[in-house]
């Protein structure tokens, strides 16, 4: 490093093969005359290959991914901070839509009954329609995990998914619904819990 006739940018460009031909020629001429510059270039060329030998290995990377995957699956609502408001707006719209659909269905069923005839059919949601919650499941929630969760809160799916993926959960009583709400809201399997 006896000479500084070349800048750090010049030397880096040369080592990376990105120097202009005239600059390359000047550096090579200088290297022939100056062992210190030749040594400096040799060092710069040797650093990359040397540091490449420090890989942790595929096992460490695979383990690291499993650890990260577990963490991000625990916090589905934490992703994409800037998108969260948009997503919440979508879910609110979904909840509103669900409420409208539910109201329409109730009106339809009431109309059938007030007609003095036995209903031609009973919708699956009808028995549970008085104690329901709307929920959106996390995209990565498995069927088995969902089934286990619903069993634990004594809920069952009575309708859905709607056009935007919202389900209605039916409960035996208002108390059961209210008791389940907090557990559903805390579950990583659930993106949203909405009242109807």
């Amino acid at each position: 490093m006896a000479t500084r006739q070349f800048s750090e940018d010049d030397l880096l460009a040369y080592v990376r093969g990105a120097a202009r031909p005239d600059l390359s020629d000047r550096i090579e001429a200088a290297m022939a005359a100056e062992p210190a510059l030749k040594a400096e270039i040799a060092l710069m060329r040797g650093l990359g290959p040397a540091l490449r030998g420090e890989d942790a290995g595929p096992d460490a990377t695979a383990f690291g991914w499993r650890r990260l995957e577990a963490a991000i699956r625990r916090e589905p609502s934490g992703r994409a901070d800037a998108a969260a408001p948009r997503r919440m707006a979508m879910w609110r719209a979904a909840a509103a839509l669900l409420a409208v659909v539910g109201l329409g269905q109730a009106v339809y069923i009431a109309a059938q009954w007030t007609g003095g005839e036995a209903p031609a059919y009973r919708t699956a949601s009808e028995p549970a329609a008085r104690h329901v919650l709307g929920v959106g499941f996390a995209p990565d929630a498995t069927a088995a995990a969902i089934a286990e969760l619903l069993t634990s809160v004594e809920a069952r799916i009575v309708d859905g998914p709607g056009a935007i993926g919202l389900y209605r959960l039916g409960f035996a009583s208002a108390e059961a619904r209210d008791a389940a709400r907090a557990r559903l809201e805390a579950s990583p399997l659930i993106d949203l819990v909405a009242d109807e």
Binding site: A39, L43, G53
Partner: peptide, 11 residues
């Protein structure tokens, strides 16, 4: 120049 070829020494 000789040592720069030896990854272990460089590290």
């Amino acid at each position: 120049i000789a040592a720069a070829q030896d990854a272990r020494r460089v590290r």
